[in-house]
Amino acid sequence: MCSSDIQVDVIVPTHTKYLDLIGSLGESVVKELENFSGDREALAYQLNLVLTEATANVIKHANDSNHKDTVRISIHLQDGLLNIKIYDHGQGFDLDSVPTPDFDHPEESGMGLFFIRSMMDAVTYTREGDCNVLEVIKYIN
């Protein structure tokens, strides 16, 4: 069990130049874990990737060429439970209708959500007020 408690909230414009910053937050969270006995490099990569993919997905669907829209990312770690929420103002999508990639006939797109699902323990996408929220959970032991 990790004793570190972390709360990070970030709001950035929907521009891909912020992906590096957002992804690096995931790596920073791993550095702060006090009693994590697993593979830190792998976990850092996973959180970087999940944050990058989720934020890039919001940016892609923001339909906002002037980058006036924003994406909010909330990271909360308590008692070994890592909870990441990504808020968007887009039209939303049906999480259950997103297919698993066909690895026998790989396509150039459609792998992002697969990565998120593969690396996290739970993924939900719900409506909260005027926002959609992609919530991902990982148990960190």
């Binding site: 992906l19 992804g23 970087n48 990737l49 990058t52 993919e53 150039e108 797109s109 992002g112 990565f115």
Partner: peptide, 15 residues
Amino acid sequence: FIDSSGLGALLFGHK
């Protein structure tokens, strides 16, 4: 670090 779009770019080149 590479994400899904990076893999996609390389797959594009391969194809």
